[in-house]
Amino acid sequence: MEELDILYFIGIDISKRTFDVAIINGEVTKSFLFDNTQKGVKAFLRLLKNQDITLDDTLICMEHTGIYGNLIITKLLEAGANFCVEMSLRIVRSLGIQRGKSDKLDAIRLAQYAVKHCKEMELYSPLPEVLKKIKILIKAREQLVNFKADLNKHPNEVKLFDAELGKLAQKQVKKTNRCLDSEIKRIEAELQELILSDEKLNKTVGLVTSVSGIGIMTALYFIIFTNFFTRYKEAKQLACYCGVVPFEHTSGSSVQKRSRVHHICNHTMKKHLHMCALAAVRHDPELKLYYERKAAEGKNKMLVLNNVRNKLVLRVCAVIKRQKPYQKRVA
């Protein structure tokens, strides 16, 4: 974060109906409670004004709480406040051993986190409006796809043991499947319209999908989670975020375990990259040769696939950096 002359550190713990505020000025900590409504947010901003707390010399810290934080984030952006939206796990682990928990206490801990890590924190950067719309459509599509998979699970299992009963079970969900397929295609058509309506988005999707194995949905997830590839400094950071970078796991002479990926990652990206890797080793000559060579050497196939996932992330970062589509190499 750029150097700011911070006098006040504010922690905000947001829940569905209310949000707790803790204000630290030197060694003095004050706590307040507001309704998570338009009226409550205005009352919070009015409180700061009444106490002569200007937003220019204030740093506000809150956890990522999804839609519950949208209202206050919007108002803070309009007011030009300096604020950060941090991952809850990062905050919890940075504070060490903590005893007891309440919304008021969590707000104080958020303010303390801001005091301790203000130089490392990055100010919140909102998603463009087009990405907000795409995020909603993708979520709706994902729910429909998951529902369809759950709906067909039972008929498919019945079919394995009794063909006649399986046909009967499939017949019952056939009409629903057609409706779900129709809705999924409608959402995909809306997504395509949004992509074509934004020049920057259309170009970025084209660059990402030029990498073998990467489809439109994976490209959109990349763009949303990285806000047009601005939320990382190096390609390896993005690969770690996607959960495809193995880390050494040794200690002295007694612990000599194989390297492995960390469980803390974006599991949505990891899942999509796995499907992309499976497609890439079939259709990309270079990656196909790499996969077959490593498998012939006796390497674990999942390990090789993870290496392919890592390579795909690095390729995506490369095309974004160069702003040129990926050129396939003949193996």
Rank of each mutant, 00 (worst) to 15 (best):
L137V: 02
R293D: 11
V145L: 12
Y291M: 03
E286R: 11
T65S: 07
S251L: 09
V304N: 01
F19A: 05
L238P: 05
T65E: 02
L105M: 14
L105P: 02
M62V: 01
A169L: 07
I214G: 01
F147D: 10
E292N: 09
L105F: 12
I216N: 13
V255I: 13
Q143Y: 02
T176I: 13
L207W: 05
G26M: 09
K42M: 11
E3M: 03
D198Y: 04
M1P: 08
K119F: 14
V158I: 15
A163F: 09
F32H: 12
F229M: 15
A296I: 00
A235T: 05
C61R: 01
H249V: 13
L180P: 09
K39G: 08
E292S: 10
A280P: 08
I97P: 00
N50P: 00
Q172E: 13
R258D: 12
V92N: 13
K132R: 15
L123C: 04
K116Y: 08
V330E: 15
E78T: 06
Y241K: 07
V41M: 08
F9T: 00
A107I: 08
L278Q: 09
D52M: 04
H249R: 15
K153E: 10
A239P: 12
V304I: 12
G11C: 09
P246M: 03
I134K: 03
N300Q: 08
E63F: 06
T226A: 10
S253K: 15
R46N: 14
H117S: 10
I187T: 03
V145M: 11
E164R: 09
P246W: 04
K119E: 15
C61Y: 02
A107H: 09
K139M: 08
F19W: 03
R322D: 09
K270I: 06
F83D: 02
L71V: 06
I91P: 01
G26W: 04
L312N: 02
L71H: 08
A235L: 05
A22T: 04
A114L: 05
D52A: 10
G166T: 01
Q237K: 12
I134V: 13
K174A: 15
Q192F: 01
L220A: 07
L220E: 07
I320L: 09
I195D: 03
I60G: 02
K324M: 13
R322G: 00
I216S: 15
S15L: 05
K159Q: 12
L105Q: 14
L180K: 07
G215E: 05
I214T: 04
H117Y: 14
V158G: 07
F222L: 09
G40F: 01
M217R: 13
L312I: 05
S212F: 08
T230V: 07
G11F: 07
C118R: 15
L196P: 00
V145A: 11
G100H: 00
F34V: 06
Y124N: 04
C242N: 01
S251M: 06
Q51E: 10
A22W: 04
L314D: 02
S88M: 08
Y221D: 14
R99H: 10
